[in-house]
Structure formats: C-alpha cells, structure tokens
Nucleic acid binder design. Structure first.
Lengths: 125, 125
DNA sequence: TTAAACTCCGTATATAGGTACGGAGTCAAT
DNA sequence: ATTGACTCCGTACCTATATACGGAGTTTAA
C-alpha cells in the first residue's frame, strides 16, 4: 500500500494526473484510512499502466474507459482496434499528401533565383 | 467594400473567426466609417484566403503570422517549409509504427479462439 | 518536538482554435 | 416608419488532457 505520491513517482506521472483520472472515472477512489490519504495497492498500479499504454497507442481517455469496461470481450476490443487503425491510416494518407505538397513547394524555392519573390508565398496568395 | 458578414460568407467562415484572427493580429482591423461597421476590400479577402490555405497545409496560426511577416523572403519561407516537412515526416513515422502495433494486435484477436480472453487487453495489462 | 514533506479539496490556468451569448446600436427593405 | 437582419463589444464557453495554486490538515524524520 502506497500513497498517491509514491504511486505517481513509480509510474513517472503527476499526482494531479492520478486524481484527474479518478475524477474522469478511469480508476475508482481507493480506500482512505483515518488520515484521509488515498492508499493504493498494486492493482491500481496495473490499471494505471494499462491506461498509460493504451494512451501511448493513441486511444483517448474516453476510449481507454471503454476498453477497460469491455472486460476482455475480444470482439468488441478488436472492433475498437480496427476503428483506430482506420483513423490512423487516414491520418497517414493525409500527412503524405501534405508532405508532397510542401516538398514541391520547398523544391521550387530551391530552384528560385529571385530571393525577394517566394514560390511558396506566391502559391498561397 | 463589404461588411464582415458578406466577407465571411464569401470565404465560408464564421464572422467570429474573422474577429478572432483580428484579435490574434493576423489581419488588421479595417477602417470603420460612421456606422462603426468594419468595411473590407479585396486585399482582406486575399489575406484571409492565404491564412486559410496555409492553415490547411498544417501551419499553426502563429506560423501563418510568421509567414505573412516574412514579406516574401524566400530563404526564410523555405526554411519554415522544411521544418514543417520534417515534423510531418516524424508524425508519419510515428503513426506507421502505431499502425503496425495495432494491426498485430487486431490480427491476434482474429486468431484468438477464446472470446472471453482478449490478446489486446492482455498485451496492455 | 518541530520542521519539512506530503496530502486533502476545489478551483483556476494552460494550449489551440475557435464558437456562443447578450444587449445595444445600425442598416435595408417594405 | 417599422421590422428583421446585421454588427458592435466584451466575455464566457468549448474540447482534451492535464498542471498549478492555496490554505488546511497529516505524516515522517532528525
């Protein structure tokens, strides 16, 4: 059993973040003995690690809450994963289009002879 | 010369957005005759189109302000474009790694026989 | 035993890029 | 002349994800 400070330090996150996740309903408020201090056991650490990993995969906190409430129903979880996958692929495609446009622009800058007329500015104007 | 409402409609943006860009310093407040109404000429429409195009390319409003203040100095503009290009490429690489991870996860869901144990949840736990 | 460190709670602040509101004044069409 | 649409301004609100603050109570270590 550890206080919120120890827990946060162990997970390398902020104390306020733990309380924030509690307010968001991602974790439940743990028992608070006489002192009024929250006391956490390892199941809390594991839940928080789950949250952090899912977040790192690009799931929003609301989505993390959903994942946690699915209690392992594989079809539901897979469906959410596939949905996220589609979004990721769309984002990649968008960024690749953007990459092409900006690369073309900067290339025409390189080819440009007149330093006071910029092809990028011109193509935006 | 048109009022803010006509201008906004022409550009398919919100009146409040025009005022917001003014507050941000992206455009200057135009002359206001007796009525107190802002009156815009075409140079404003062109400036706003510039802003909208640059925004669509992923430049932040602060960056757009910089671009506009460079007054066509091509080297500076090119440098900002290259910087943006690097960021875009990093984002693409990040997303592609993510894509791989989530795809592997959902694939192992498909291969999973037990509907009450989910490989995704397990790998997050 | 006392001082430092920690925790409590509610609320405010931050980012980016807007959107919404409300009361008062103005313009345009009938 | 009136009514509806438009504009003014300042300010509050929105999303998402936290972080910061302040005053009061608690624990811990020297």
């Amino acid at each position: 059993m550890k206080t919120i400070g120890k827990l946060a330090k162990e997970l390398n996150i902020n104390v306020e973040t733990v309380r924030f996740y509690e307010r968001k309903g991602l974790i439940v408020q743990p028992l608070k003995p006489d002192s009024g201090y929250r006391m956490y056991d390892n199941t809390y650490a594991n839940q928080l690690k789950f949250i952090l990993k899912a977040k790192a995969l690009g799931f929003t906190l609301d989505e993390v809450a959903s994942l946690m409430s699915m209690s392992g129903n594989c079809a539901d979880v897979e469906s959410m994963g596939l949905q996220k996958l589609m979004l990721i692929r769309e984002k990649i495609a968008d960024l690749q289009r953007l990459e092409q446009v900006i690369q073309d622009m900067t290339n025409s800058c390189k080819a440009n002879q007149d330093p006071n007329s910029c092809p990028i500015i011109n193509s935006l104007s």
